[in-house]
Design a protein around this nucleic acid. Structure first.
Lengths: 220, 220
DNA sequence: TTGATGATACGTGGATACAAAAATACTTTT
DNA sequence: AAAAGTATTTTTGTATCCACGTATCATCAA
């Protein structure tokens, strides 16, 4: 292996973690599905042990539920839980944008504008990359806050809601409101008013939740 | 084992998790200490396998750091990280108190008053239970919010800062400011003004950070 | 037909075994 | 005596194995 491409898959556990997380984010497993270590291990060519360890982390992330002696099932969100996550996101990302404000320069603004355009284009083409572009915008703002733990917590929540966002985005035909709200966030940032920016972000996030809620699978 | 005492320690992994977490919270291991699975496994009479799995969860909680092929070391916080955690707590617990407000009845107020008194007494007796009492107050308010995920996230952060709080409480002789600030939170709750309560809580939490910061071990 | 009972297959939790990687101790060389 | 290299020990990562718990399904009684 080339030296400049160092050790991509450090451990089997890490590979298992990524593999399953990716599948969950893309909605390849549905809530309630049972994940059998042996099967997954076979898929990626390893023994059950690293997979079990990956399950522990996924459970900590809230992506699966691990119950003693009865294995691992894909976690699903109730409407209440979905709303709760959006409440939490609203204050965390509100904080992020407030902290980001003093660190944003003109270059960063241009970057945000570019992301806005890319999201718009992805929306028109109807592709499911939508979600990715949407998250990129939120992620970029979080990153600007320069707070590692804050960024980490927020992105963990984004992973949990990603499958629901995909369903929503597939179904709904108005990426426009998201575009406008993101533009409003940028405008608030440009205004230089920290508390305004925080508030606009909070409202943007909270306004998304009710729309998403309709797509939470009722089978729970 | 008696049937009415059902399976307290469901799995070995759970026991290992509790054991190590407890030790970390009490500061029995210091940041940078290396945790050797074999040793811990021996302490509690099991093989190193469940301990390894417990390590994964503890790493997710941010209590230890796991690096491929070089084991598990106790995580320590830099001053920046400590501040960051308090920023995050400020918005999360601010949210919690805001959501708790409409659910608080007279009985709950009396409970909070009792906790206030207990904290005061623990402070006078100089005992290290201080921390526990202090957390109980914050924990009670979070619980009143009735938001499982929010409660979970907040208590995870409390675990991370607990060892630092213990050092602080051992050293400083003014539990009084904490008492007054907690009283202010209760007063704000009684006033019925959600946003006031949120703000008072945020300020209480942020005012604690600088005092704590002095006790962060400089060896990092 | 329905509900209890028991046999069977499957899966999980944990211990042990083994190979590979790090850390450590020990030479050897300068 | 210091540095570099080598051998030895320790520890980690993964695979395999076994015992127990759980679920499934067939059998049988009411």
């Amino acid at each position: 292996m080339p030296a400049h491409f160092p050790d991509m898959s450090a451990t089997a556990e890490e590979e298992a973690y990524r593999h399953v997380q990716r599948a969950l984010r893309h909605g390849r497993y549905k809530p309630g599905d049972r994940l059998i270590p042996e099967e997954i291990a076979a898929e990626i060519g390893m023994s059950r042990m690293p997979v079990r360890e990956a399950f522990r982390r996924l459970a900590s992330d809230g992506l699966v539920i691990l119950r003693p002696n009865r294995g691992c099932v894909v976690a699903g969100l109730t409407v209440d839980e979905l709303f709760e996550i959006f409440e939490i996101r609203s204050v965390l990302e509100g904080l992020a944008v407030r902290l980001a404000m003093p660190r944003i320069d003109e270059e960063a603004f241009e970057e945000l504008d570019r992301l806005l355009v890319r999201m718009e284009r992805a929306g028109q083409s109807g592709s499911s990359d939508w979600v990715v572009r949407h998250q990129e915008f939120h992620g970029r703002i979080c990153a600007l806050s320069q707070r590692p733990k804050l960024i980490h917590q927020i992105s963990a929540l984004h992973v949990v809601i990603e499958p629901y966002m995909r369903i929503w985005f597939d179904d709904c035909d108005k990426p426009h409101s998201a575009r406008e709200e993101h533009a409003a966030v940028i405008a608030a940032l440009r205004s230089g008013d920290e508390h305004l920016a925080e508030k606009v972000m909070q409202e943007h996030i909270l306004s998304t939740a009710p729309m998403l809620a309709e797509f939470v699978s009722p089978t729970r």
